[in-house]
Amino acid sequence: MKWRDLAEHQIQKAKAQGALDDLRGAGKPLPKRDGGDIVSAGMGIMAEAGVLPREIELKKAVDAQRETLAACTDPAEQKAAMRKLADLEMKLAIEQEARRKFYRTS
């Protein structure tokens, strides 16, 4: 899938979910950004809209789960927290690999 097609798909998905309704600066040209590439510009726009890529959401979830695990004292709770952490880390690794593959083929 080409970058243009992926971007268009994400825009249409966000429109359908209402994520692009009532954005600050709607109908105005995008502001100029210093020295950034298309990826950083896209990330900036997403950040301003309050939308996070799945990879960032997973990184935050992994960090939160590590804190939860560190606070566990009961062995059964530790085991459950470790299982959840392993699951989140696996999902994060999958997202990261998908991103790397996408940028290699585009």
Rank of each mutant, 00 (worst) to 15 (best):
5 D>F: 03
99 R>T: 15
85 L>C: 00
98 A>L: 06
23 L>G: 04
4 R>V: 08
33 R>C: 10
76 A>D: 09
103 Y>V: 07
53 P>T: 00
13 K>A: 12
65 Q>S: 00
19 A>C: 10
26 A>E: 06
86 A>G: 10
62 V>R: 01
102 F>E: 06
95 E>V: 09
67 E>L: 03
25 G>F: 04
61 A>S: 02
64 A>F: 00
81 A>I: 12
47 A>V: 10
99 R>S: 04
20 L>W: 04
50 G>H: 13
27 G>C: 05
32 K>I: 14
75 P>K: 11
77 E>L: 10
79 K>D: 01
58 L>C: 06
18 G>P: 13
56 I>S: 03
88 L>D: 11
106 S>L: 11
19 A>M: 14
90 M>Q: 08
101 K>Y: 07
18 G>L: 13
24 R>F: 15
47 A>M: 11
100 R>A: 08
61 A>V: 09
77 E>V: 12
23 L>M: 02
6 L>Q: 07
74 D>S: 09
57 E>C: 05
101 K>E: 14
24 R>N: 15
101 K>R: 14
60 K>P: 00
26 A>N: 07
10 Q>C: 12
2 K>W: 08
102 F>T: 06
37 D>Q: 02
40 S>W: 10
3 W>E: 07
78 Q>F: 04
18 G>V: 11
38 I>R: 14
91 K>H: 08
95 E>C: 10
45 I>S: 07
57 E>W: 01
11 I>M: 08
38 I>W: 12
91 K>D: 11
65 Q>V: 00
54 R>V: 03
27 G>I: 03
3 W>R: 07
77 E>G: 03
71 A>W: 05
85 L>K: 01
70 A>D: 06
99 R>C: 04
19 A>I: 09
83 R>Q: 15
23 L>K: 01
51 V>M: 13
75 P>L: 15
3 W>S: 10
69 L>P: 00
41 A>H: 14
23 L>S: 04
78 Q>C: 13
43 M>T: 03
50 G>E: 15
66 R>N: 01
26 A>L: 09
15 K>N: 11
71 A>R: 12
105 T>R: 09
4 R>A: 09
96 Q>R: 13
12 Q>F: 05
46 M>L: 15
70 A>K: 10
63 D>N: 02
86 A>H: 14
62 V>Y: 09
10 Q>L: 14
28 K>E: 14
67 E>S: 02
16 A>N: 13
21 D>C: 14
22 D>E: 12
35 G>K: 10
39 V>N: 05
65 Q>W: 00
80 A>D: 12
59 K>P: 03
19 A>P: 04
18 G>I: 11
92 L>R: 03
63 D>K: 05
52 L>E: 13
34 D>I: 05
97 E>A: 03
58 L>A: 13
21 D>T: 12
82 M>Q: 06
17 Q>P: 13
51 V>H: 02
101 K>Q: 14
102 F>K: 13
41 A>E: 11
66 R>W: 01
94 I>Y: 04
69 L>T: 00
93 A>G: 10
9 H>L: 15
64 A>N: 00
3 W>P: 07
31 P>K: 06
57 E>G: 04
11 I>S: 07
25 G>I: 10
20 L>K: 05
85 L>M: 01
90 M>K: 14
59 K>Q: 14
76 A>W: 01
97 E>K: 13
12 Q>S: 11
63 D>Q: 09
58 L>G: 02
87 D>S: 14
21 D>H: 13
103 Y>T: 08
42 G>M: 03
30 L>Y: 02
103 Y>C: 02
37 D>H: 04
78 Q>R: 15
90 M>I: 05
